[in-house]
């Protein structure tokens, strides 16, 4: 019977909006870039693992870095990035991208790059975490030496963050136990991100790169429930 041979589709092409990290190259020297990448990766290895990136070459478009594009791509892969394409640059760059197996994306339209909120899970070596549409929820204690990163959203820790542990999020961080380690919110540029905790004993807190260490905290806030927000170029830590 001919009808039994109903064709089952094996492929579908669909348009989807995805958030991708853009790596802006600001120096035309491969060595300088490699050194800086190593430094960043060392700081937060799990942050970058298998992170798809687009290379924004606008700032170095006039240099001859495009000759090294394939090498640069390999260098990123060796550090466990997944380079998917380039953005910006002229004909030379487009040719080099094609030769290196990279896609070419149209140049930036809104340079502010409105922070989108896609959620992904974090570090596999950390406690079990559930990533939901609303962010990431961690129910186990985050212990010394562990690192949890909520990429693209908020992080909620139901238990304590021990001294020597580190939690990071692109959005807010809520900690319902005591915060004894480090908490870094808004790590990819969200200046509106905040940190909330029930008992404040942190070693370091940071919002969008502006940080403060325990030596600088007011004694009166120690052990208290606090919220931390960015106020200009300093942190505003106040009791809840």
């Amino acid at each position: 019977m001919a009808g039994a041979q109903a064709v089952k589709p094996v492929l579908e092409l669909k348009g989807r909006m995805m958030t991708l990290t853009v790596l802006r190259l600001l120096d035309p020297s491969v060595e300088v870039l490699a050194r800086e990448l190593d430094r960043r990766v060392q700081e937060a290895p799990d942050f970058f693992r298998f992170l798809p990136v687009i290379l924004d070459v606008e700032a170095v478009a006039d240099s001859d870095l495009y000759l090294d594009l394939a090498g640069l791509s390999g260098l990123l892969q060796a550090r466990q990035f997944v380079p998917v394409g380039i953005r910006g640059g002229g004909e030379d760059w487009r040719e080099a991208a094609a030769a290196a197996g990279l896609a070419v994306f149209p140049a930036d339209r809104d340079s502010a790059g409105g922070e989108s909120r896609r959620r992904q899970t974090g570090d596999e070596s950390g406690p079990k975490a559930v990533a939901t549409e609303a962010g990431m929820i961690v129910t186990q204690p985050v212990r010394s030496g562990q690192q949890i990163y909520a990429r693209g959203g908020d992080l909620v820790v139901m238990s304590a963050v021990s001294p020597g542990a580190e939690v990071l999020a692109d959005g807010h961080i809520h900690i319902y136990g005591s915060l004894g380690g480090r908490a870094l919110a808004g790590v990819r540029g969200d200046t509106g991100a905040r940190i909330f905790c029930r008992s404040f004993r942190a070693e370091l807190v940071s919002i969008n790169g502006t940080y403060s260490v325990s030596e600088q905290f007011e004694d009166a806030l120690r052990g208290k429930a606090v919220q931390i927000a960015l106020d200009g170029d300093s942190l505003d830590i106040r009791a809840l």
Partner: peptide, 14 residues
Amino acid sequence: VRDSDRVLGILASK
């Protein structure tokens, strides 16, 4: 106590 905390983290993951 801190070292024990570290070990507890390893017990939970490794």
